[in-house]
């Protein structure tokens, strides 16, 4: 159970596949249009259950409770060895005859 007042993220289907317009690619049309938004939980709620939040701009949004205290997952990824070669070669071309 996630406590009222916790910073959470909810998920909500905005358009079901059959509500999506026809002028979008077929693969996209087979999926729903989904929204995620963060805010403060308004009542004690279990994960995966319908939830109501107040967003940063104090709007009310409803959806399915996905996660409490959602982390920021931005990093530099895994090492890509090719990158290291680029500068090495350029320096050789540029400075080899100086």
């Amino acid at each position: 159970m996630i406590k009222k007042g916790t910073w959470v993220i909810i998920q909500k289907t905005i358009l079901a596949p059959d509500q999506r317009p026809d002028n979008i690619p077929e693969d996209t049309k087979q999926t729903p249009l989904v929204m995620w938004v963060k805010g403060f939980l308004q009542e004690d709620t279990a994960l995966g259950q319908p939830a109501t939040i107040k967003t940063k701009m104090n709007r009310t949004e409803t959806g399915t409770l996905q996660e409490a205290n959602p982390p920021t997952l931005v990093d530099y990824g895994e090492y890509v060895p090719e990158i290291t070669q680029i500068g090495t070669q350029a320096r050789e071309i540029l400075f080899s005859d100086i």
């Binding site: 999506r20 996209t28 995620w36 938004v37």
Partner: peptide
């Protein structure tokens, strides 16, 4: 300080 609404792919983002 902004509120961010994250959506899946699709031009209907304009609707939201």
């Amino acid at each position: 300080g902004a509120e961010v609404i994250q959506m899946t792919v699709g031009p209907e983002l304009f609707y939201k």
